[in-house]
Design a protein around this nucleic acid. Structure first.
Lengths: 221, 221
DNA sequence: AAATAAATTTAGACAAACCTAAAAAAAATT
DNA sequence: AATTTTTTTTAGGTTTGTCTAAATTTATTT
């Protein structure tokens, strides 16, 4: 009874899932950007996914996974994150080099394989990037986001989203080499101007203003 | 510079490799049977593989992998057998349920992944079926086949081929539940008629005649 | 050696998943 | 409210890998 989805369908489902996690829904253009393909291709697949009852979609509208689609997405996310954990913990990869490989391994979809791997790894609850791993029923720990200004000193965290998309902000983030996923620890807070010194990716030290810190959302890892 | 081959191309290459291992070369019909596809499809792909210089092939002739094609085949076999070993040794699968899963995992082709996995497993030289695992240079132990009558007492081995295809023989093998891959240990040899008692798959005890033993080829595992 | 059978290839279709260019709908601006 | 811009869809192709049916080549019989 293991319904089977193509490599491509799974990539769509996974990316729709991530988009609707961050903004509540997905759109054709966003998904095309995420999948590095063209909007017209997206429309084609949306129709197929809708026909398979995995997607709630009406032409020209934004769309979301159906409960069934979400179940499948969580299976993919589960496999992805378990393999990432495996690669880092058992095969000694760096946390920053496992994504691509997990991207392929996640498509090997066999319930017993996934569950045995989970057991072998001792049922980890977070992957090496700090993201929660769904259990075999699709349940996972919900992570609370916080504003960087609220983060405790030396608490390891990771940039999860930014509070605006203004080009001024993006320019600054680019200059400081901060992106979604960058690991952050607050090393010092200066009460004079509420600026702070950060350590990025356990390597680089940078200083940022309160204005910047207040638009950076992080989650603890 | 990791040249990339499609899932489908890899399946062709792997199956051509196995065919030429057992009979010295491959033919269109045999390959179609192995891949459960149609001869016309095979011909199409043979042309593509030839164009990519992976195959030595002239229309209407039998064919073989080029040295380059063989190198790729050995990479696939290496991944397949390493994953099988992983599944049995680490994830506690039975040796008879890992083939299908390894069939998918083998297509995840990343040199570092494969080499780290190899190291993690402690450089195993044989997979759970007793087949040798190529090392990162494609070298592997060559296995000598022997006739079952020559096998030492209690030496674990595995049926690798049969000396005839007669229906009488096949009927007998079917009745005794012996196939290619069946695990065999000789528990007793009776000098009166040279019949022997075997243990099959570490479970069942059976008696076989000298005539039968003399047409069963085994390899040690 | 001719006829028959078997194996292989060619020709032409088809589905999946992608593309470009043009049309249509929705959203944003003036 | 009308116009412009952006987003999305439609229409029509392309590539990959498969298929069936017919043609061709090779092998086997008679």
């Amino acid at each position: 009874m293991s319904s089977n989805f193509s490599h491509s369908e799974e990539n769509y489902i996974k990316n729709i899932y991530h988009l609707q996690q961050s903004t509540g829904f997905a759109t054709t253009n966003e998904l095309a950007a995420a999948l590095r393909s063209k909007p017209a291709s997206i429309t084609d697949m949306l129709k197929k996914l809708k026909a398979k009852k995995l997607l709630i979609y009406e032409p020209y509208k934004e769309f979301n996974l159906s409960p069934q689609g979400k179940r499948i997405a969580l299976g993919i996310v589960r496999r992805h994150r378990l393999w990432e954990y495996f690669l880092v913990e058992k095969l000694k990869f760096g946390w920053d080099e496992v994504h691509e490989i997990a991207e392929e391994l996640e498509h090997v979809s066999n319930k017993k394989l996934t569950d045995q791997l989970d057991q072998f790894l001792n049922y980890p609850r977070f992957d090496p990037h700090g993201d929660p791993i769904p259990d075999s029923n699709g349940k996972m720990i919900v992570q609370q986001q916080m504003i960087l200004t609220e983060l405790a000193l030396n608490a390891p965290s990771q940039v999860s989203s930014v509070g605006s998309q203004s080009s001024e902000l993006l320019e600054l983030l680019k200059h400081k080499n901060i992106t979604i996923g960058t690991r952050v620890e607050v090393k010092k807070k200066f009460s004079f101007d509420r600026s702070m010194e950060l350590k990025l990716n356990n390597q680089v030290a940078v200083n940022i203003s309160e204005q910047l810190a207040s638009v950076l959302f992080v989650k603890s890892v």
